[in-house]
Design a protein around this nucleic acid. Structure first.
Lengths: 191, 191
DNA sequence: CCGTCAGGTAATCATTCGATTACAACCAGC
DNA sequence: GCTGGTTGTAATCGAATGATTACCTGACGG
């Protein structure tokens, strides 16, 4: 396999692993096993675990941004709806939203923190300037995204018949439940 | 110091440490140093790092719930405002909201996941049944909370003169900025 | 053929970390 | 004053982990 293809393959695997276990909780060997390569190769291709995570994070936000831009193009009406759907669709890519969420908790890290702030600020800018959202609209949109991240990260849908959880899920993810349920890893995956 | 006092002191220290570094990223020695005791003592008092984290998490959500209940008591009008303020005030307790956020990303963990789901579902129930929020109101309230967690976790206010970040901060945390800025740890703390 | 270079692995190293063990200091009650 | 329980610590251990080194393999040009 070419080096570029291998890089992309490892990035995809690493997204799933970092998304499931977080930055500190994931090991380079987890990533290597998921990508079906040896652990030293992962380290050598990316230099270090930290640089690998940064590459994963940048790629994840780039996918998010390009999804949003595709939704922005087109008629003004229902633009917010299209963007919401674009966000939901990203749930299908294993770990992508979770990687972003987990990076957002690493603000105190001297290396990852500044990168995460820059990316977050960039998404805000995209919403305000490219999507044309007003300040409150942008805030509400982002807030809803964070809530969706939380529900997905919690695997809330795997709960055994808790009526509160069911209502929560239905209220927060209207008419997207089917897509989500089928694409979210179970509680047992990767642990 | 009595065992009970020592337990509480360690729980407070552990909240700050787990909040700053996450479950996997924090070490029992970090907690011990923050609490000014020896590392074996931390482990012995709580049995294991995992049980310590669970104790920290339960305590954090208990504080959140009691803050909400205090805000619920009293007149119906402005109840939501009082609850929002109660949430913001919890930012002052180092790491408390971050611990909750980070637990919400551990849904895949076979031990922590179920506990986190139960606690999250409990908060939803509190909003719906005790606070009397409608489904949409409860969702919006939670979503805003998650966004606040994100902004705090990112240390967004420490950014050096990014106008997007400033706007984001102002829009998401109206009239609470002063309280927040003074009580959030800097980027350099504990890393 | 043969050198060499890209793609990849096995073996191993130094640290780190959670946990265990053994032991020390203090204090209450008899 | 000694005995037993409570509050702690120092020393240490074994496993896990990120990283490094040395090596293998096959394709491709000359």
């Amino acid at each position: 396999m070419s080096s570029a293809d291998r890089r992309e393959s490892i990035l995809r695997a690493a997204t799933a692993v970092f998304g499931a276990k977080g930055y500190a909780g994931a090991t380079t060997d987890d990533v290597a096993k998921a990508a079906e390569v040896s652990q030293p190769y992962v380290v050598r291709l990316f230099g270090s675990k930290q640089q690998l995570f940064l590459a994963v994070l940048e790629r994840a936000v780039a996918r998010l941004s390009s999804g949003f831009r595709a939704a922005i193009a087109g008629p003004d009406e229902a633009r917010a709806d299209r963007m919401g759907r674009a966000y939901i669709e990203l749930v299908a890519e294993r770990g992508l939203l979770q990687v972003i969420s987990s990076a957002f908790l690493l603000g105190g890290d001297p290396v990852i923190g500044p990168v995460a702030r820059r990316l977050f600020s960039g998404v805000w800018q995209l919403l305000r300037e490219e999507a044309g959202f007003g300040p409150d609209e942008a805030r509400d949109f982002m807030a809803n995204g964070m809530l969706i991240n939380t529900i997905v990260g919690l695997r809330m849908m795997n709960d055994e018949g808790d009526p509160s959880a069911d209502e929560l899920f239905a209220v927060c993810l209207p008419e997207s439940a089917d897509l989500l349920i089928s694409s979210i890893p179970g509680t047992d995956d990767d642990w």
